[in-house]
Design a protein around this nucleic acid. Structure first.
Lengths: 227, 227, 227, 227
DNA sequence: AATGAATGAGGATTCATTCAT
DNA sequence: TATGAATGAATCCTCATTCAT
C-alpha cells in the first residue's frame, strides 16, 4: 500500500506539455517551474491512485507520499482534497478530447472519422489507463465535474453527428434521436474499454482487438447508414 | 445527512414476496420474520445510501440509522461492511435480470425481444433507481461482484444474440464480434439510464422518452440486420 | 479463533468429581445435574481460554461458544464475566493444593516431602496445563483471588517449613526468613513450570526432566540443611 | 480512572540521560527534542498503566490522556498499540540488566556478586516498580518479547553460574542443572519482589527487608556451596 | 514554500449485558 | 431455563486539515 515508487504518475504528464516549454536539460528550475512541477506531481499522483484504487482510497497521505512531498505541502497547491478530485476529470477529459479530435480530423467522411476517433479513444486509454475509473466514480465523488464532462463530450459528439447528417452521410435522425445516439456511442467506448483494456497492470498496454473495432463499425455504420 | 426515514427501496422487497405469504395486517411478526425484516431493512438502507451517495458514504452508522437499529445490530446480519457491499450488486443484478427476462420472453423475434428487454431495463430503473450507481462504483468497491455481474449479464446477452444469429434474425457475426456487440448494448442501457433517468429524486419516476427507444432500436435493428 | 471444538475444557473436569457422583451411564440427568453440568462446562471453557489466550481474550461469546451454549445462558450461571474470572484461580488453586498435599503426605521427612510435593506440582501442570497462566494474569484480572491464593499457598508452605524446623529437619531459620523461603520455593515451581512445561500443545504432556528435580533438590536440601 | 497526571516513570527516563545532555533550564526544545520527549511520554505512560492495571487496560485513549496528547498523535510515534507493548519489556528489561550488572561487577566472588545483584534487582524495582507486572503479563500480551527477555536474562545468569563453577566457587553442577538453577534464581527475584515490594503506591518506595536477603543468601550460598 | 507533528472527529468492529420469546 | 437478537459504549485506527518551525 505504500506509495513510494514512481513519484510522477507517468511520463504522460511530461508528454502533456507543449514541447516548447519543456525545461532545458540540466538547467536549474525557476521557482515558478518548480511550483508547477509540484502541482503536476500531485495531480498525477492523485490520478494514478484514484484510477487504480478509487477516490476513497486517495488520501492526502497517499497522494503526497507518491509525489514525494510532505502532507502539508499539498495545501499549498490545492485548497482541499475535494479540489484536486474536481480537477481530475476535467483535465483528463480535455486531454482525451484533444487526442481524439486530432485523430478524427484526418477522416474524410462520417465513417472514417468515426472509426478514427473510436480507435483514438482506445489509444488514449493505453496512455492514460486510469481514465475510465476516474470517470465512472466521478459521478459520486466529483459530480459537478462529471456532469460537465458528460455534457461537454456529448455536445461535441452531437455536433459531429449533426454535421454528418447535414452532409447526408447518415440517416436523417431527429435532434433528440441524435442525442441518444451520441450517448450510445460514448457508452460503447467506456464499456468496451473496460472489457478489453481494463484491469491491466499499466505496463501491459494491450491494444484493442480488431474484431472489436469491426463489430463496432458494423453496428454503427450500418445502423446509421441511409437505408 | 441524517438517515432517519425508511428506505424507499424496501417497498420493493415487499413487492418481491410471493403474494400469498404477505403478512396479514397487524399480526405480530414471529422472531424469524423479524430477523428477516431486519436483514432486509439493512440491505435496502445500504442500497439506498450507496445508490444515492456512493459506497464510501455508506458507513455502518448511516446504514443502521436509516434502518432504525443500533450500530452493533448490523453485525448480527452481516459479517462486515464489505459483506453487505458484496451482496448489493448480485442481488439487484439478479432482480434486474429476472425483470428483463420476464418481459423479453414475450417477444417473437430478435427485434421484438430486444425492444422489450430494452424497455424492461428502464422499467426496472424506475423501480430500483439506485441500480446504476451501485453498479458503476462496484468496480472499485466490490470488484468480484462487479466482474461476476458483468460476465453474468454478458453471457446471457451473448446467448441471446447467438440464438438470433442461428435463426437468421441478425447478421452473421463471428463469436468475438457478438461479444463486443453484447457489451455495446449493455453499455447503451447504462448510459442512457444515467442520462435520461439519472439523478432523480426517486419519487419522480420519469419514463424513458420514446425517442430514445426509437433511436436505440433504429441503430440496433439496422446495425444488426442482415444486409 | 472460533471455539466450537471440544466443549468441555478437558477430561479434567470429569476427573475432578468425586467418583461416587459420576452420573450413571445413560441415565437421564436430573435438572440439578444438568444445571451443574452447564456450570462446569462454562467454567472449564473459561479456564481453557484464559489459560491459552489470557483473560482479555476470554469474551462471553467465546466462552459460551466453546461450551456450546447461547450467550445469554452464561448469565444464568454467573453474575458477570468478572464473576467467573474470580472463581478460576480459587478453584484451580484448591485442586492444585489437594493434588500436591495428597502426594506429599507420603514423605517421611522434609526432604522426601519436599521432593514429592515438587514432583506433584508438575504432575498437576500436566493435568491442568493452564494453571500457570491463569495464575500469573490473575494478579491484574482477579486481584483478590490472586492475593488469597498466594497467601493461602504460602500459609501452607510456611506451616510445613515450621514443622520441619521444629523437627530439626532444616536449619533454624527465623519466622520471617521462613516466609521468604516459602515464596522462593513457590516461585521456583512457577518458573520451572513455565520453562520446562510451558507453551505446550496441551496434548503433549511432557514430563519435567529429572535433572531439574535434581537441581532443585540439591539447592533446597543443601540450602536448608543444618550445617 | 482518568489519566491526567504525569507518569511517574518518566522521571526515570530523565535520570537515564547522560548528565551532560540534560536540557538547560528553560531553553526551548528543538523539534527533535520535542519529538523524543513525546515518544518518551507515551512510552512511560504506557508502562505506568500496564504496570498498574495490566495490558488490557492500556487503551490508546488512556495512554494518550496520561501523556497529554490527542489520540491520533499516538500513531505518529508507534505503529500500533501492539507495537508499544512490544517495546515495554525489552526496554525495561535492558534497563534492569544494566542496573543489575553495574552493581554485580563490584563483587569479588560468587557470593558477593550474587548478593549485590540480588539487592540491585530490588533497587531497580523501587525505581521501576511496574517492571514485574509488565513482565508477567507479557507472556500473553507480548509473547515474543517475553521469550526473548527470559532467554536473554537466563543466558546471562547461566554464564555467570558457569564462570563461578569454573572458578570453583560453587558446586560442580551439570550444564542442565545450571540452567534450572538460573530459572530458580530468576523466579525468586520475581516472587519476592511481588511479595515484598508489590502493590505499592509507587511513591512509597519501600526497601526489601534484610531478612529476605538473608534468607535468600542462606539458601543460595549454602545450596550451591561446594560440600 | 516545505515540512511533518498535532489534532479530534469519524469509521469499523467488538463486547458485556439485557430482555423478549 | 435457554436462546440469541439488540443495544450502545468502548476500542483501535485513519484522515483531512491546521500550524509552528
Amino acid at each position: 500500500m505504500k506509495e513510494r515508487q514512481r513519484a510522477f504518475g507517468s511520463s504522460d504528464f511530461v508528454r502533456d506539455r507543449p514541447s516548447g516549454t519543456r525545461s532545458r536539460t540540466s538547467r536549474k528550475k525557476t521557482r515558478a517551474e518548480k511550483t508547477e512541477a509540484n502541482r503536476e506531481a500531485l495531480f498525477w499522483a492523485a490520478a494514478e491512485i484514484v484510477g487504480r484504487h478509487g477516490y476513497s482510497a486517495a488520501s492526502i497521505a497517499r497522494i503526497t507520499a507518491r509525489a514525494k512531498m510532505a502532507q502539508g505541502t499539498f495545501y499549498n497547491y490545492f485548497e482541499s482534497r475535494q479540489a484536486i478530485f474536481d480537477q481530475l476529470l476535467p483535465r483528463l477529459g480535455e486531454q482525451m478530447l484533444e487526442h481524439v479530435r486530432a485523430m478524427a480530423r484526418e477522416g474524410r467522411d462520417f465513417r472514417e472519422k468515426e472509426e478514427l476517433s473510436f480507435r483514438a479513444f482506445f489509444d488514449f486509454l493505453r496512455i492514460q489507463p486510469h481514465f475510465l475509473r476516474i470517470l465512472s466514480e466521478a459521478e459520486t465523488h466529483a459530480p459537478k465535474a462529471f456532469k460537465r464532462h458528460m455534457s461537454n463530450v456529448s455536445r461535441g459528439y452531437i455536433a459531429f453527428l449533426k454535421r454528418s447528417r447535414a452532409r447526408n452521410e447518415i440517416k436523417n435522425l431527429g435532434d433528440q434521436e441524435i442525442e441518444a445516439i451520441a450517448y450510445i456511442l460514448m457508452a460503447s467506448r467506456s464499456y468496451l474499454g473496460l472489457r478489453y483494456l481494463g484491469n491491466l497492470p499499466p505496463s501491459m498496454k494491450k491494444k484493442l482487438p480488431d474484431h472489436v473495432v469491426d463489430a463496432y463499425m458494423q453496428l454503427v455504420a450500418d445502423g446509421l447508414a441511409k437505408q
